[in-house]
């Protein structure tokens, strides 16, 4: 990935797995190329890329990769409040990449396919619940 340095890629890989841990049939972000997707997205948005690079560089200065997991989480919580601009972009890009992955979309109970071309079957619903409305009669105001 050219958008982010190797060190930033490593840090980001560790972070995204803390943001979204693996669970049952839902993979960890690093297993489904979330970091690569973030890099691709940042390549089109120089302003946000700068926020990312600065944020990751700052985290790197705290020797993030060598910290135990619990301290990594504590550090991220600090960034969530102290550097909201970076953290909100970090979350948004992580979620963007994760929740558009077909494996994840299938894992949350959908078909895993995009909405088209198959669409879905929808129940018509219970229109007898309109009976009271009909019985009540006209509510529009005749001027």
């Amino acid at each position: 990935m050219k958008t982010l340095s190797k060190n930033n890629v490593d840090i980001l890989g560790e972070i995204v797995d803390l943001l979204i841990p693996t669970k049952e049939n839902l993979p960890s972000p690093s297993k489904i190329d979330v970091v690569e997707h973030i890099g691709d997205a940042l390549s089109n948005t120089p302003k946000i890329k700068r926020i990312f690079v600065e944020g990751l560089s700052d985290i790197n200065n705290k020797k993030f990769l060598s910290l135990p997991k619990s301290e990594q989480i504590t550090l991220l919580k600090k960034y969530e409040t102290s550097n909201g601009a970076f953290f909100s972009q970090l979350l948004r890009h992580t979620y963007n990449a994760y929740y558009t992955n077909p494996i994840v979309v299938a894992g949350i109970g959908m078909t895993g396919s995009p909405p088209q071309p198959m669409g879905y079957t929808l129940e018509k619903g219970n229109l007898t619940l309109l009976d009271k409305v009909i019985k009540k009669g006209q509510i529009w105001r005749n001027p």
Binding site: L122, E123, K124, G125, N126, L127, L129, L130, K132, V133, K136, I139
Partner: peptide, 20 residues
């Protein structure tokens, strides 16, 4: 179509006797 979601909220309107 209303679907399950539409039926759910229509039930609320119906209980209150409000227009929907």
């Amino acid at each position: 179509g209303l679907g399950k979601l539409g039926d759910k909220i229509a039930f609320g309107f119906d209980k209150l006797g409000w227009h929907w």
